[in-house]
Design a protein around this nucleic acid. Structure first.
Length: 276
DNA sequence: CTGGCTCCCTGAATGC
DNA sequence: TGCATTCAGGGAGCCA
């Protein structure tokens, strides 16, 4: 499930280049091909092909879980959602299953592969409107614990679903939310406005810790969605229901909040008075 | 404002 | 063995 660390890993791979993958910076897009039309949010497939042709990749950025290819005249924005991934392959490689969009360069092709078809692509001159409602970037230093505390105080939602809300904080998904709450010793159903300044600071630190660790490990490889990362070996609660907490030995509990599996240690993350 | 639920979609796991 | 059902999850949208 691509979250911030996985998107950042992909961004770095195509920005710097990696084994078997060249840097895309400065390369020209010869042509693009759409294999499953609903992947493209805007513009129409025809205009997409016309506009993207001949543009050069100037820079590759990220905002939350959005991957942004800055081209000469437009921005190509990609959200991988559940199962999206970008593959670099030979221009004449046989078409793998679940490819949704192809971009051809001089020396190979970039394929957007997305088994579950939830991923989306935008091509627009100014992508800013896509990001106006997104919450702050958790890794940016100018976003302080005090600001985070104030933000938490302004809402009265359960902290786990709130962390998943991209309008509240950008980039955190189900895995990293559970891992961050465990590191901060906070129960997932704690009301956001019930958190103390100390807890808020610990939570922001926990979020940053797991995100940085995730990036260091090139992200997490979950189930059959393989991305080559290794952070899944560092999970302390995610998908460990019934197994002992590494800190206290208590069995990890799984419950469902906002339709999302939620994992926590009932001893290290004690329930607030109003949780049931 | 908050929470609960559905939808989108496919492959893996489970059930009979 | 084989077929059917259930489930996971990011995010938008709907309703209470």
């Amino acid at each position: 499930m691509p979250e911030l660390p996985e998107v950042e890993t992909i961004r770095n791979r195509f920005r710097r280049g990696a084994d078997g993958t060249p840097s895309l910076l400065g390369k020209h897009i010869l042509r693009a091909e759409l294999l499953w039309a609903p992947t493209l949010e805007t513009p129409t497939p025809q205009r997409f092909r016309e506009r993207i042709r001949g543009q050069r990749v100037q820079e590759i950025g990220r905002r939350g879980k959005y991957l942004i290819f800055h081209l000469d005249a437009d921005a190509l924005v990609i959200h991988l959602r559940m199962s999206g991934d970008l593959w670099w392959e030979a221009e004449d490689a046989p078409l793998a299953p679940h490819h949704r969009m192809l971009m051809y360069f001089e020396d190979g092709r970039l394929a957007f592969n997305d088994t579950r078809k939830f991923g989306r692509i935008w091509l627009m001159a100014d992508p800013a409107p896509l990001f106006t409602r997104l919450g702050p970037e958790p890794l940016e230093e100018r976003f302080t614990a005090e600001m985070f505390y104030r933000r938490l105080q302004s809402r009265r939602r359960q902290i786990k679903p709130l962390l998943l809300d991209q309008h509240f904080l950008a980039g955190v998904g189900n895995i990293y939310a559970d891992e961050a709450l465990h590191r901060a010793g906070i129960h997932p159903q704690t009301r956001s406005n019930a958190l103390t300044p100390t807890q808020a600071a610990r939570l922001l630190e926990g979020v940053r810790q797991v995100l940085r660790e995730g990036i260091e490990h090139n992200g997490a490889s979950i189930d059959w969605v393989y991305r080559g990362g290794g952070f899944q070996n560092s999970f302390r609660v995610y998908q460990r229901a019934g197994e002992p907490c590494y800190h206290c030995g208590t069995a990890i509990v799984r419950l469902v909040l906002s339709q999302r599996g939620t994992h926590f240690c009932p001893r290290c993350q004690p329930a607030p008075a109003d949780a049931h």
